[in-house]
Write a protein that binds this DNA or RNA. Structure first.
Length: 474
RNA sequence: GCUCCCUUCGUCUAGUGGUUCAGGACGCCGCCCUCUCACGGCGGUAACACCGGUUCGAAUCCGGUAGGGAGUGCCA
């Protein structure tokens, strides 16, 4: 059995789509699983739409996810000589021919076919042309077999049969001489010795034509596996309006690459009831035979859940690095507050993305801390004034601003006033964070730091004092 | 229109003729834990598109219907 070789062949005509990533992942996993090679090939034969920035996006995206190629990237734009050589050879051998039909003529033909309820296809009118038509730059068409059938033994779809009579003579070289997709794919997959073509569902219809071209080349076609599509959360084709489809958006929003991979691998593939797969498990367990045949809808909530699972499981120092970047992204400076790793430790169970974590920890990195009016009204009441003053004194007296020391101080106050820890905890939290939600109060105070904590407590005490006087006055 | 593909809870899926009045996960609801919020634990909600056939027996096999999707380009 020859070594498995798969390839991911995106065209740089847009962003690196989340659906494309899933395809890349399956190709990569399959190669890794079988100890084979994974090849990256950039299909940039469309010179109009191919852009260098899109190539960068592809490379960056794959690198971020850890999907590493053993070969490539190859660029089709650099392989024109190979394509041209085959076009010439096929022309000589009669496997291809020049077609002089104008776009208008083709259009009229299609209209007529449609009107007649026929399958729309090129009717081969230039097949037997003896003489070139002067003044027209012809395209080159592949001479597809007229009859018989092409059987695709698809690894996920099973046996799919196409009639050659339904296929037509596709263009392999444009009038400017440039080769087209269906042709270059075949040449490349052969040249690069690809053994398994794993790609999106949308290519299933191209497969019989490609098999015919492998035949013309005189070589055996690779195995094919067509993956079901990924739809948006409303069942429609995935697009911008479903939120993020660009893989870079996920990095920016604070998703962990292993969470994205884990989410994607479970779209169209499963291993019993298992939900969490680290990359090593995926590569050990993945098999094309377990890929299902139906399209799946993208579910942002589940991705969020998975991301949090990974946040919970990831060591604090790495989380800290990522959180530091997120803080920067929202205009905060990690140097203006606690070590982001400590914040991550306190917030890993409280945030689904690192971006969310940064937003929630804003109060740790800014001097200003606006207290939510409603919360102040609810929790910063005169009854708590004395306990708050007391705990403020105890905290100020601490020579060690540690969680346990802070915790002791709070408990002492609670005991002294014979109140529950919650009675003092929530006002403290409001005072020090501005809101009603944060990690355990001792952790929170530790993160905010002594200076800011005391200052904010003073502000809260002033606020309550004023409020108490107002009450007395009225 | 024509060709091809698909169809289990709202969503991702398990299930490959009987051990399943269908299991897990996300979401949602409830309870527990608890200084808040989470996390965690426990419980609940909810599906075999439809109609025929094969079979002692079908979510599982076959046919049809309906619905969805892809392709039908000098795009990939």
């Amino acid at each position: 059995m020859s070594k498995v070789r798969t390839r991911f062949a995106p065209s740089p005509t847009g962003v690196l789509h989340i659906g494309s990533i899933r395809t890349a992942l399956f190709c990569w996993l399959y190669a890794r699983r079988h100890g084979g090679q994974f090849i990256l090939r950039i299909e940039d034969t469309d010179r109009e739409r191919s852009k260098p920035e899109h190539i960068d996006a592809i490379l960056d995206g794959l690198a971020w996810l850890g999907i590493d190629a053993d070969e490539g990237p190859y660029y089709q734009s650099q392989r024109m000589d190979q394509y041209n050589a085959v076009v010439e050879r096929w022309l000589d051998e009669g496997k291809a021919y020049r077609c002089y039909c104008s776009k208008e003529e083709l259009e009229a033909m299609r209209e007529a076919q449609k009107a007649a309820g026929e399958h729309v296809r090129y009717d081969g009118r230039c097949r037997h042309l003896e003489e070139p038509k002067p003044g027209i730059e012809p395209v080159v068409r592949f001479r597809n077999p007229l009859d018989g059938e092409v059987v695709v033994e698809d690894l996920v779809r099973g046996r799919v049969v196409f009639e050659n009579a339904q296929l037509d003579d596709l263009i392999i070289a444009r009038s400017d001489g440039s080769p087209t997709y269906n042709f270059t794919v075949v040449i490349d997959d052969y040249d690069m010795q690809v053994t398994h073509v794993i790609r999106g569902d949308d290519h299933l219809n191209n497969t019989p034509r490609q098999i015919n071209m492998f035949e013309a080349l005189g070589v055996a076609p690779p195995a094919f596996a067509h993956l079901p599509m990924i739809l948006g959360s409303d069942g429609a084709k995935l697009s911008k309006r479903h939120g993020a489809v660009d893989i870079r958006d996920y990095r920016e929003q604070g998703y962990l690459p292993e969470a994205v991979l884990n989410y994607l691998v479970r779209l169209g593939w499963s291993h019993g009831d298992q939900e969490i797969f680290c990359v090593d498990e995926m590569t050990a367990l993945f098999d094309i035979a377990d890929v299902n045949q139906s399209a799946s809808q993208f579910n942002p909530e589940k991705l969020l859940w998975l991301n949090q699972q990974y946040i919970i499981a990831t060591p604090a120092d790495r989380l800290g690095d990522e959180l530091g970047k997120q803080l920067g992204a929202i205009g905060l400076d990690a140097d203006d507050g606690p070590d982001p790793a400590d914040v991550a430790e306190g917030y890993r169970e409280r945030a689904q993305t690192l971006r969310e974590m940064a937003e929630k920890a804003r109060y740790c990195y800014e001097d200003d801390c606006e207290v939510d009016g409603k919360q102040a009204k609810k929790h910063l009441r005169p009854v708590i004034l004395e306990p708050l003053k007391d705990v403020r004194e105890k905290l100020a007296a601490l020579d060690d601003w540690s969680e346990s020391a802070i915790n002791n101080a709070i408990h002492d106050t609670a005991d002294a006033f014979d109140i529950n820890i919650g009675k003092i905890g929530q006002p403290l939290r409001i005072a020090v964070t501005g809101g009603p939600v944060s990690p355990p109060i001792d952790v929170t105070l530790k993160l905010v730091g002594r200076e800011r904590s005391l200052a904010r407590l003073d502000a809260a005490i002033d606020y309550i004092t004023e409020r108490a006087q107002g009450q007395k006055a009225s």
